[in-house]
């Protein structure tokens, strides 16, 4: 074997072995790095530190979770309050619409038919104060809505006699007068018929007043 071929084989051998060693080095380094990152091969002291750190983080996260839960509860309560307020406002709106006569209403009520005798030798006339007393008694005994000859009474409606007619707000109506009231039927009947009440007064003045209980009254707006 010549020196040249000997050198070649030696160089080839060095190259092959060093190539083999180099080939395995990155794989070995990668495996070692992966092992360092896995907890199984960690130093127990490091693991204890990691556990303490994780426990601290867990406590912090639990505190945050509690805080967030409280906030969510507060928001939910606030939204519930808002919904309740909206419902209350809607109810108030419905009541107000009833009071201002914007919506037609129906329900159990009473009908009082008043007939005066304006002719003859001894006429009987329904006085303003008697009519107002009748209406106020109805309001006081539980009437929710009242109409006179189909004209809805509002809080600001003025009712008074105008000659032989009756003026109800901007309208003028004639006798006989049909007073219809929706509300607590029993209370309204008792209120009108109590001794010394408005019916006694009308009877005393010889004004006919017939009280009827109606299971379903319909009052338009």
């Amino acid at each position: 074997m010549t020196n040249r071929s000997l050198w070649r084989s030696t160089a080839l051998m060095f190259f092959a072995i060093s190539f083999l060693v180099g080939l395995f080095l990155p794989g070995q380094a990668r495996v070692v790095q992966e092992m360092k990152q896995s907890y199984q091969n960690q130093d127990p002291k490091d693991l204890i530190r990691v556990i303490k750190d994780l426990q601290g983080r867990k406590a912090t996260l639990l505190a945050e979770e509690t805080d967030m839960s409280q906030r969510v509860t507060q928001y939910l309560r606030a939204s519930d309050d808002t919904a309740a307020q909206v419902q209350q406002l809607q109810r108030e709106e419905a009541v107000l619409q009833q009071k201002i006569g914007k919506v037609p209403l129906e329900g159990p009520g009473i009908r009082v038919t008043i007939q005066e005798q304006s002719t003859g030798e001894s006429p009987s006339i329904l006085a303003d104060e008697d009519l107002l007393l009748l209406l106020n008694d109805l309001w006081a005994s539980g009437a929710e809505v009242i109409s006179l000859n189909g004209i809805r009474l509002l809080n600001s409606t003025a009712v008074f006699r105008a000659g032989l007619n009756v003026r109800v707000g901007d309208h003028v109506t004639t006798m006989p007068l049909r007073v219809e009231a929706i509300g607590d039927v029993e209370n309204m009947s008792k209120g009108l018929q109590m001794p010394g009440g408005v019916l006694d007064l009308l009877n005393l003045r010889r004004v006919s007043a017939i009280v009827q209980t109606v299971s379903l009254l319909k009052l338009s707006n």
């Binding site: 160089a11 060095f14 190259f15 092959a16 072995i17 060093s18 190539f19 083999l20 060693v21 180099g22 080939l23 395995f24 080095l25 990155p26 794989g27």
Partner: peptide, 15 residues
């Protein structure tokens, strides 16, 4: 030189 070359080439191949 051959050894270093083999080592470097081996590392490159391993990477």
């Amino acid at each position: 030189f051959v050894t270093v070359c083999g080592l470097v080439l081996g590392i490159i191949a391993g990477v």
